[in-house]
């Protein structure tokens, strides 16, 4: 007994310093920290060039927000045509994707049998996995001719409506899968309670399950808007190539992303006003989507109902 006790006293149980372990941990931390560095790099690089753009004596606040022609090369700095077309295409996309996505989510989570669900969900996943450039092809060569057939001559070869609708189809799987997650997280007991009160399946879904999942659906909506604002290829192909201040969805108008894609795809000399103006637009895009993403996460965290 005393022998073991004396041995125990000699045992050093304090933490041993292992340089190899510490080195590995430091490297892993750096890998994790790189993501912060990427964010900082985005903010710094976009901010630096945007600063050069706004520092240009020709670019005034009044011109930027007060005029409606965007042609930096010849001194027109009104951002509105790019902003309005971005808003219009995104609005059309959300008008298409929110009701459809929500209806699909309600059907899959409340009505479909498990077997039907597992057969139908991969179809939506395929829709979600199709590259946006393919959606662009679809918008230009299917949706636009279709709209021209329905609405006649007024529909341009390039138009915001076609790009917006197809963008809605692209965002639909995102909305439906996020909403379905939110709906199926609502505990069964709530549904059973509603049924016990004599509610129909529809009344249960709309008056009990849907309100309980509202925060998740709100988050899906916000993420959807953020995707629509940042989407590039569909609008670059189908919405038109040239800033145009119009509220007619059947007219061509270039969005912020489409403008960046078209200008940067050509020959672009560094330090020109065209070059710096693209970074100013990109910075706006980054900030808008960042705020939307943060709000969406906050909505999920703040209003998440905990059923346990």
């Amino acid at each position: 007994m005393t022998y073991i006790a004396s041995k125990m006293n000699q045992l050093d149980l304090s933490k041993k310093f292992r340089p190899g372990e510490s080195l590995i941990q430091a490297l892993l931390f750096l890998a994790g920290f790189l993501s912060i560095f990427i964010t900082l790099a985005i903010v710094y690089e976009l901010g630096k060039e945007a600063w050069l753009f706004f520092g240009n004596p020709d670019v005034t606040f009044a011109k930027f927000f007060g005029t409606t022609t965007w042609q930096p090369g010849i001194g027109h700095f009104g951002i509105w045509p790019l902003v309005t077309s971005t808003l219009i295409t995104s609005l059309i996309a959300m008008v298409v994707s929110l009701p459809l996505g929500l209806a699909v989510a309600l059907y899959l989570s409340e009505y479909a049998s498990p077997k039907a669900r597992s057969a139908l969900k991969p179809i939506l996943e395929i829709l979600a996995g199709i590259p946006t450039v393919v959606y662009g092809y679809f918008a230009l060569l299917f949706m636009t001719p279709l709209l021209q057939k329905i609405f006649g001559e007024g529909v341009g070869v390039y138009n915001m409506a076609s790009a917006g609708i197809v963008m809605g189809i692209m965002i639909l799987p995102l909305i439906s899968s996020m909403s379905e997650d939110a709906l199926s997280a609502v505990p069964r007991a709530l549904r059973e309670g509603a049924y016990a009160m004599g509610a129909t399946k529809f009344e249960t879904s709309i008056q009990v399950v849907l309100p309980a999942a509202l925060s998740g659906i709100g988050a899906a909506l916000i993420i959807g808007i953020s995707r629509a604002v940042g989407e590039t290829m569909i609008v670059a192909i189908a919405a038109g190539s040239g800033p145009n201040f119009t509220f007619n969805p059947f007219k061509a108008a270039e969005t912020m992303t489409g403008h960046i894609a078209r200008i940067s795809g050509g020959d672009l000399s560094y330090n020109s006003i065209d070059y710096t103006s693209l970074f100013a637009i990109a910075l706006m895009l980054f900030l808008v989507t960042l705020v939307l993403n943060l709000v969406s996460q906050a909505v999920i965290n703040r209003f998440r109902q905990r059923y346990e």
């Binding site: 994790g32 920290f33 993501s35 912060i36 990427i38 964010t39 790099a41 985005i42 690089e45 976009l46 630096k48 060039e49 993420i223 953020s226 604002v229 940042g230 989407e231 590039t232 992303t257 960046i260 894609a261 940067s264 693209l278 970074f279 990109a282 895009l285 980054f286 989507t289 960042l290 939307l292 993403n293 943060l294 996460q297």
Partner: peptide, 23 residues
Amino acid sequence: IQTNINNLAGVPSIVYGMLGLAI
């Protein structure tokens, strides 16, 4: 770091293009 990674996943791809162009 965790919040930032989630946010980076939502940054529009064209912004990464601008980052790549600049850096």
